[in-house]
């Protein structure tokens, strides 16, 4: 699956696919740690796929400071734009 992740819909499609969940069950307000399939392995796969597609690196420190999928989406947008 290759998506630019620069639109909310494509980001949610991507997230649903990578975390093997229904897109209807998530939104930007979804707390990612509460997604049933969120495990150390799946989180690593998800972060590596974000890097593969966008070249954005997300660390565990970043994740510890944020809470929901919207925060991840914002992080990707900011870093792709060179804000961080």
């Amino acid at each position: 699956m290759s998506l630019p992740l620069n639109e909310i819909e494509t980001f949610l499609d991507f997230t649903a696919y990578e975390l093997s969940i229904s897109k209807n069950s998530i939104s930007l307000e979804t707390r990612f740690r509460e997604i049933p399939s969120w495990s150390s392995l799946n989180a690593l796969i998800y972060i590596s796929r974000i890097n593969e597609i966008t070249n954005v690196l997300i660390t565990s420190g970043d994740l510890s400071e944020i809470d929901n999928l919207g925060d991840i989406y914002k992080l990707i947008k900011e870093r792709r734009n060179g804000d961080n």
Partner: peptide, 12 residues
């Protein structure tokens, strides 16, 4: 092991 950080440091 913090897998996400090992990934991030390695790739960076």
């Amino acid at each position: 092991l913090n897998g996400i950080d090992v990934f991030a440091y390695s790739v960076k």
